[in-house]
Amino acid sequence: MSKSNTILYLDGVSVSFDGFRAINNLSLVLDKGEMRAIIGPNGAGKTTMMDIVTGKTRPDEGEVFFDGQVDLTRHDEAEIAMMGIGRKFQKPTVFESHTIEDNLMLALKGPRSIFPALFHRRSAAEARQIEDILGIIRLGDKRHELAANLSHGQKQWLEIGMLLAQDPKLLLVDEPVAGMTDAETEETARLLKDIARDHSVIVVEHDMHFVRELGVKVTCLHEGSVLSEGTLDFVSADERVVEVYLGR
């Protein structure tokens, strides 16, 4: 398989923790500009796969390439983030003691060393970017509130906003609609489809309604490897997927 024109290329990746094979010979390819939904039962290795891509976990074997040529196994979290891979955690993780605006400011693309941060002054361009993102995630009227005071769904949105501020090439979004109302879920689907217009996105989600809403290619993971891949209808018709995940 050719790596060129892929944004993410995993081949034969395995990792085990204390003898437990969390990822087992996983191969997954994401084309540039593609959005992919990943489904699978608990323990299928979805989060571990994200850990490997973002540099938190080193694979025991296998190849992980970003943008066709960058070997991600040789870089750590901060470097990978700077290359343009953004990640939203399963549990929304924002800086609770900061305001919404400050959360976005810390995420905003720019130099990441100490001294520029020490003497940093917000420029008009940055203010405008923050303004735009606040509009997209619909938290403009709460900009001066502490992130701790947001609802669960709003925190999810703030975290997506922080991803946007980072302006990554590839977004890894782990369970973005967990704990959201139906209306919020629909909004999030709309938001992600918007983002996918000029970014590559991987979405991990259990909510099949939401996955259908996204209308993209689906990969079902099971016991650390790909069980089935294709359109949602194809995957959900797959005997084995029904067996291990969807239930009869």
């Binding site: 990640r87 003691s97 900061h98 810390l106 922080m162």
Partner: peptide
């Protein structure tokens, strides 16, 4: 303070 409250978040944002 962000590092104090959520260290790994700062890493995934690219901060060391």
């Amino acid at each position: 303070m962000a590092v104090r409250d959520a260290e790994s978040r700062t890493r995934f944002l690219g901060w060391r």
